[in-house]
Design a protein around this nucleic acid. Structure first.
Length: 445
RNA sequence: GUGGGAGUAGCUCAGCUGGUUAGAGCACUAGGUUGUGGUCCUAGGGGUCGCGGGUUCGAAUCCCGUCUCUCACCCCA
């Protein structure tokens, strides 16, 4: 073939499209029932919207372009800057809290690998205008609600939660200079991914003796609130600043308890997140088997809107990409088997009856029922097979009985039961259970 | 950007100590004589063996290059 799909992109043939729609429908369903409203923005933005926030390195992972007027543009690699821009533009008039969601198609010019493609879909949830920890907790509730919706229990997935403020406090207690915080975050983020001695070497290289590795070691691998308390109490020299941050974390976990989702949640000092704009609570969702990268992640970004030129407005939100979650669900055997959806397949028993069959097709379609038929006159057996392959719920045969008595023969393709009904009655309710023959089926429902 | 692995039918793969017209399963198409599917049988279509070059009487098979895919690293929104 001369042309194939570009690197890191996917074609969604009907089979794959059904799954994509199933997933995005789940996202929308969960969003709406949690009180969020859908929004969307343009698929490309001014390049600076991304570069001003995240630095120039980011530009190398952007698909950027220039229009004929010389404007520098970029295909959106994430949704949060667009959200910030949109909220800023109407900051004075939007009722708060702003609870919005979106399912944008995003592009990043990265090298594709497992769980990462260059074009993907991402579910975004944001709560803007509220700095209450309750908003942080609710965003996590929505994430967990989704996990439940797709059949992932607490034994399958976990939300690992940390706080940038807490980490910053600990680092301050350890006398890490404020301008070196980002470096320290980056190293802490590696703690769970590389061997301890390698981390030690990197830490030593970065901070030398000013902040000895011994001092931060108790911090590493801290999981669970109890463990956190121990680590802080046992810290050499005392972690006064860190101790002051404890109540905030405890308050968050109290809300999570009220929401009934603590079995999914765990405090984890290793979750820092790479993104610069997070200021408070940060969290990531993982499969328990740790066979995949993060399913999703989010956190609080209290300075982002101001940094984008708007008023100071706090926000919290998360994103879940379609690639990793699909991998996880596939592995767990939780993806549904989806067939095409068709209410009725109309069969003409012989070629002379095709006009009546077409008449029936049109009437059913007008009534709102998804209906299909064969272009060719084939044996009833072949057409029933076609109906079955199409995933039709009912096959209806227009035959001799239609000619003589205006009756149609209806076959329920899932049970195999067959009944005859009057044409008009069938058109009025094609999926209704039939008469005597369907009594049994009706009872079993 | 760096490194490993892999490219044979739409998909999953076999064939590879070089030797006639390159195979299987699934999928697809058409039949199995006049109105009953989801489990059957038969037949058929579809591949310049990723591409280019080299070695050889002869290359899917050996060598070189190249492209693509994939996994990992870097990075992570």
């Amino acid at each position: 073939m001369k042309f194939r799909a570009a690197k890191g992109t996917r074609d969604f043939y009907p089979d794959a499209m059904r799954l994509r729609t199933w997933l995005t429908d789940a996202w929308r369903r969960v969003s709406l029932r949690n009180g969020f409203e859908e929004y969307d923005g343009p698929i490309f933005e001014h390049l600076e919207l991304y570069t001003t926030k995240s630095g120039d390195e980011i530009a190398s992972q952007l698909f950027d372009l220039e229009d004929r007027g010389g404007r520098r543009l970029a295909i959106r690699p994430e949704m949060t800057p667009t959200l910030g821009r949109m909220v800023n533009a109407r900051a004075q008039s939007l009722p708060r809290p702003i609870k919005w969601f979106s399912v944008p198609r995003l592009c990043r010019a990265e090298r594709p690998q497992k769980g990462r493609l260059r074009e993907f879909f991402q579910w975004n949830i944001d709560i803007v205008g509220v700095d209450d920890v309750l908003a942080d907790a609710e965003s996590i509730l929505v994430a967990v609600d989704f996990l439940r919706e797709v059949g992932l229990g607490p034994e399958d997935a976990v939300v690992r939660i940390n706080s940038r403020r807490l980490v910053a406090a600990v680092l301050a207690d350890l006398r890490v200079p404020p301008d070196r915080m980002d470096k320290a975050y980056a190293l802490l983020d590696k703690a769970g991914k590389i061997p301890r001695d390698a981390l030690q070497a990197m830490w030593k290289e970065a901070f030398g003796d000013a902040v000895p590795f011994d001092a931060i070691e108790p911090l590493l691998g801290v999981e669970g609130l109890d463990h956190l308390h121990e680590a802080i109490r046992g810290a050499k020299g005392g972690w006064a600043a860190a101790e002051r941050e404890l109540p905030a974390i405890e308050a968050l976990f109290e809300k999570l308890d009220s929401f009934g989702i603590t079995e999914y949640c765990n405090f984890d000092m290793a979750i820092v997140r790479g993104l610069a704009y997070y200021t408070g609570v940060v969290y990531e969702v993982f499969d328990r088997g740790q066979a995949h990268r993060a399913i999703g992640g989010g956190g609080r970004y209290d300075n982002l809107l101001r940094d984008l030129g708007g008023p100071a407005m706090p926000g919290v939100g998360f994103g879940v990409g379609d690639v990793v979650i699909t991998d996880v669900l596939t592995e767990a055997g939780k993806l549904p088997v989806l067939k095409g959806e068709l209410d009725v397949y109309v069969i003409a028993a012989d070629a002379e009856l095709q006009p009546r069959a077409l008449e029936l097709v049109a009437q059913l379609r007008r009534g709102g029922w998804s209906t299909d038929f064969s272009y060719r006159a084939q044996s009833v057996g072949k057409l029933l097979r076609a109906a079955s392959d199409r995933g039709a719920r009912r096959a209806v045969i227009v035959g001799q009985e239609t000619r003589d008595e205006n009756l149609v023969t209806i076959k329920d393709l899932t049970t195999g039961q067959q009944t005859r009904r009057d044409w008009a009655a069938f058109v009025a309710a094609p999926l209704a259970a039939g008469d005597e023959g369907d009594e049994q089926a009706r009872r079993s429902l």
